[in-house]
């Protein structure tokens, strides 16, 4: 599909740049990103329902629409 190839090339520069930045992140920055993610997961841990198995099992809805 040659037309599609053309489209890919004309993709917005911003997005391409964003992706490159992520790929080219220096080790220090990658470390910071990982720490940030770990913090977020810890934060999410603190709001998660306490018993995953029980909660998932008892989560039942009636069909709708």
């Amino acid at each position: 599909m040659p037309e599609r190839e053309q489209k890919k090339k004309s993709a917005p520069k911003e997005r391409a740049r964003e992706t490159e930045e992520v790929e080219a992140a220096p080790p220090k920055q990658a470390e910071a990103l990982k720490e940030e993610l770990d913090d977020l997961l810890d934060e999410i841990d603190s709001v998660l329902e306490s018993n995953a198995e029980d909660f998932v099992r008892s989560y039942v809805q009636k069909g709708g629409e």
């Binding site: 770990d38 997961l41 999410i44 709001v47 998660l48 329902e49 995953a52 198995e53 909660f55 998932v56 099992r57 989560y59």
Partner: peptide, 18 residues
């Protein structure tokens, strides 16, 4: 990746719901 959870772990189903 943090907790080594398999796809059938109820914690993933919980995260999906929540």
């Amino acid at each position: 990746s943090r907790d080594g959870l398999a796809w059938d772990d109820p914690k993933l189903a919980l995260l999906d719901l929540q």
